[in-house]
Nucleic acid binder design. Structure first.
Lengths: 224, 224
DNA sequence: ATGTTAGGTAACCAAGAGGTAACAGGGTAA
DNA sequence: TTACCCTGTTACCTCTTGGTTACCTAACAT
């Protein structure tokens, strides 16, 4: 299990991370909200543990941002302030639990486990990330290094198919059968489809991700 | 939403039930563990709130019993004992949350809502806000940047459906099945419904919130 | 080297998804 | 009754889409 811990007090964070490790809970660590959001773009976590009081971007704002991004990962707040309105605010922003400092590390671990367990019952792969490419299946959106990319239905179909098999090669007939199940497609259709997808995904000056292997098929992966 | 409250102190129970009612949470009530189990056989609840200290069958035993019966309904413990080992025990038995007395009724309500939401994957909130758009479910009103917007019943249905899934996409057939459950709707009905809703919500010079993704569906979100 | 072939690039165009507007029937309130 | 609103229907328009074709390029075989 992998969680994201966002906490500006380094010593407390270290203590927490060490303890959670003994419970089989791995931590990624961010010391402020902005870095947390950055990590969230790249990785997928089972739970997010958020300190409320942080420099730059406080926990509430981070939580709000996360939810507006459509990320439904469980969020637990940690805070020294045992204030009802704060708690209610946190829950209203989409938090799943709220623990006030000082707390026992064992309790934190137990609550994290619970959230992760509940989540995994509902969790189906919702996002795919590769390099600066992100596919959000729920929002049906694709971004490359932050920029939104509009895909047509067939392009989306091809991309998700490649993503599902990434970084492996998918051979052309498999793709054709997947996208055009009924018809026997003319040989060139896939050719142009790939070209169009590539020009949308890889047109930038960033590393290209859509690779064709002559005679074998097509793969979505980082270049080596 | 319907929850089961198991609590032996009648006066506290009544207080709790009354308050939860104001939050739109209905309660079934059992005053001990045996009666709780009896009710659980008959009904289905969104959340179970369990007092730990009860005569005849204590909360932990009830929890254990519930889980061995294969019932996965979220369970929240209430107890006066703020003891770490008790908490850990509770979580180990399959609890989802643990609140120590004395607690604020608002916090209890908020935590119950969260558990129910996770469980049913349905958003139960009084209000939904996105950009300058506000939906007040209790007042059944919609405003865009302060201006009141009058929606017809079907329009309201569509908007709330989109809001519930926001910012995720909802595909057209899902919407059609949701709004016209019985009939097989003619293909154009949704088209005009969306048009009418959009012209009410997005007619201003503000960012448009109703987005259609060709071949995929419709989403309510802020544009990027 | 030269021919052959898999794959890349670019333009064209018909089909269809979706947007817009107007109309009509049925229900409801004054 | 009349007037109005809601909603289903239809017609028309616009723009995306995806299939087609032609031509180019690079890898591979002989």
């Amino acid at each position: 299990m992998l969680i994201l811990l966002v906490e500006d007090e380094a010593d407390l964070a270290e203590l927490t991370i060490d303890f959670l490790a003994t419970q089989g809970i791995e931590c990624d660590y961010a010391f402020d909200g902005l870095n947390a959001l950055r990590l969230l773009e790249i990785n997928q976590y089972d739970v997010i543990v958020l300190d409320v009081c942080m420099p730059r971007l406080n926990g509430f704002s981070v939580c709000e941002k996360i939810r507006t991004l459509g990320i439904t990962t469980p969020i637990m707040f940690l805070t020294a302030r045992d204030d009802l309105s704060d708690k209610l605010n946190g829950f209203a922003l989409g938090a799943d639990d709220y623990l006030t400092k000082p707390f026992e590390l064992e309790e934190l671990a137990a609550r994290v486990q619970v959230l992760a367990k509940r989540q995994s019952n509902v969790l189906i792969a919702k996002r795919f990330c590769l390099n600066s490419l992100t596919i959000d299946y729920q929002q049906h959106s694709v971004t490359r290094s932050g920029r939104q990319i509009a895909l047509s239905p067939t392009q989306w179909q091809l991309l998700t198919l490649l993503a599902k098999n990434s970084p492996n090669i998918v051979d052309r007939v498999t793709i054709e059968n997947e996208i055009w199940p009924d018809q026997m497609p003319s040989k060139d259709m896939l050719k142009t489809l790939v070209f169009r997808l590539r020009s949308l995904i890889d047109n930038s000056d960033e590393p290209s991700l859509v690779h064709t292997v002559r005679g074998a098929g097509i793969a979505l992966k980082e270049p080596l």
